[in-house]
């Protein structure tokens, strides 16, 4: 409840302060840094060197709510209901996608040899696409951290598509703008829904959508759990994704 009130205040105040942003970058560095170091430890042990306790960490997230997604990679069975739900909800044309399922083969593996990796826009804290866009058509939302596209400003130079380390963007012929996942902000979240279309459609509980700045949320608890191996895609690019992956 206390948290909610604070959220309200944050929204009224608008953008986050520079100090908060810097602190969060430190946190992001800690999270991705561990993985880049090659150990799949939890983030929280290193985070604790910077922040005293969970409340303080939560407070220092630059966005409230700080939308993020945790993907239980081993649970995905490639039914692609998420892809269909996304396409229907967000008017994604045949030739494009905002989310998809990639397939990894491990013929050397004991037991299961195929793994599926759902991918979508990582809503990065340091987004390469936002830096590259000449007209600020794509931008990081000051409140919730979602990387948005202002369709009317997109000139279609496609630099954001080249810049994105995850190939999360495509050019939409119908809207004449580059299109990407926005966590269903316009189609669901802003209309009071709690989940993205993909998270709701998933029958296997692969996609856990939530607020990373809320200590009660599952994403928070998993990402900050020393027992859990959590990682992000392509940490070496330094973009600091907000889509996390885990198993189990």
């Amino acid at each position: 409840m206390n948290q909610d009130q604070e959220n309200g205040e944050k929204r009224e105040n608008g953008a986050v302060t520079e100090m908060e942003r810097r602190d969060f970058l430190k946190l992001g560095l800690a999270i991705t840094g561990i993985f880049a170091g090659g150990t799949l430890l939890s983030a929280v042990s290193v985070v604790d060197e910077v922040f005293a306790n969970r409340e303080e960490i939560a407070e220092h997230y630059p966005y409230k709510p700080h939308y993020s997604m945790l993907i239980h990679q081993d649970r995905c069975i490639d039914c692609e209901r998420c892809v269909a739900a996304c396409a229907e909800t967000n008017n994604v044309p045949e030739y494009g996608y905002r989310t998809r399922i990639l397939e990894q083969l491990h013929p050397e593996s004991e037991g299961r040899q195929t793994e599926f990796i759902p991918v979508l826009c990582n809503q990065c804290n340091n987004p390469a696409c936002v830096r590259a866009c000449p007209t600020r058509a794509t931008y990081k939302d000051g409140e919730n951290g979602i990387v948005m596209v202002d369709k009317g400003k997109c000139i279609g130079c496609k630099t954001c598509m080249s810049a994105c380390p995850f190939n999360a963007r495509y050019y939409n012929e119908e809207t004449r703008a580059v299109d990407k996942c926005n966590f269903c902000y316009d189609t669901r979240l802003s209309r009071g829904e709690q989940l993205t279309a993909c998270a709701e459609a998933c029958p296997a509980g692969v996609r856990v959508f939530g607020d990373l700045s809320d200590p009660e949320s599952e994403v928070y608890r998993s990402v900050h759990n020393i027992e859990k191996a959590v990682w992000v895609l392509r940490p070496e690019t330094g973009v600091k994704p907000n889509v996390f992956y885990t198993k189990g």
Binding site: P134, T135, A137, G152, K153, C154, I155, G156, Y171, R176
Partner: peptide, 14 residues
Amino acid sequence: IENPFRMAVYNVIS
């Protein structure tokens, strides 16, 4: 460029 006319406008105002 997909929308060159938008470029002329938004390069200046945004």
